[in-house]
């Protein structure tokens, strides 16, 4: 149980690791975005999908996209827990005294009140997710010398597939989605399509129990896809083609 496991590690272990991972990811994401491009043959980095044209040459098109997934994660009920605890020490760990005293308003004031708009970030992120599925499918079609695309698979395509599956698990385990599907209902059997909504709500609820897991795994998978592409671009590795 959580009580026992948190007994084994010092209380600061969890907040510190979250600070390191989230900061590291952010720094990498900004760096990647500043590269201005992220494609390699049929692979398109999720940081740059969907492909948009930037109005200015100095402005990376990634910034037109990135605010959506970042906003989705920043307002996510799980990540909120993670950063309130590790970055704001509110609280750093359970039953630990806090650094900050009286001035606390939770999520009732700017900026954290924005977290209430999580459902819209979910909707936008779902649109982006559709493009990522499209990209993942493209990752299985390789152009031959004459420019014709053929179905095939390589290590890269597999990484794309895993990434988009994890991102979907993360998206569809969202608390706001769970609310929209069934959480807002008081009586399933009294409502139109209540049976179907109850069933779907049940599935979302099962996924939702692992929401933190999907949050972390999908974060790492996005990172992996971009790194993989950049390694290919730099010629440091070769894609492994299965067929």
């Amino acid at each position: 149980m959580s009580v026992a496991s948190s007994n084994e590690r010092p209380w600061w272990f969890e907040p510190l690791s979250i600070v390191v991972v989230l900061s590291g990811f952010s720094i990498y994401a900004i760096w990647a975005a500043l590269q201005g491009q992220g494609a390699y043959h049929n692979y398109l980095s999720p940081f740059f999908s969907p492909k948009l044209a930037s109005p200015f040459s100095w402005f990376s098109p990634a910034f037109l996209i990135l605010w959506v997934p970042l906003g989705f994660r920043a307002t996510c009920y799980y990540y909120r827990k993670a950063y309130y605890r590790s970055f704001f020490w509110d609280p750093p760990a359970c039953a630990r005294p806090e650094l900050r005293g009286e001035k606390y308003s939770g999520e009732t004031k700017f900026p954290f009140i924005i977290n209430n708009l999580h459902r819209y970030f979910f909707l936008l992120a779902t649109i982006v997710l559709a493009f990522l599925w499209y990209d993942a499918i493209l990752a299985f079609f390789f152009k031959d010398g004459s420019g014709n695309a053929h179905f095939g698979a390589a290590l890269g395509s597999l990484i794309f597939l895993i990434n988009v599956v994890l991102l979907s698990l993360y998206s569809f385990s969202c608390h706001s989605l769970r609310h929209i599907i069934g959480g807002k209902m008081d009586c399933f059997t009294c409502s139109l399509a209540g049976g179907a909504r109850h069933k779907t709500w049940g599935w979302v609820s099962i996924l939702n129990e692992r929401h933190p897991l999907w949050a972390w795994l999908s974060l790492f998978s996005v990172l992996s896809v971009d790194i993989y592409i950049r390694l290919l671009q730099a010629g440091l590795i070769q894609d492994v083609r299965f067929f």
Binding site: R80, K81, Y84, P91, S105, G106, E107, I113
Partner: peptide, 10 residues
């Protein structure tokens, strides 16, 4: 004052 909860799950 549900807004005071910052869902830190303790």
């Amino acid at each position: 004052l549900i807004g005071y909860c910052n869902i830190t799950k303790c």
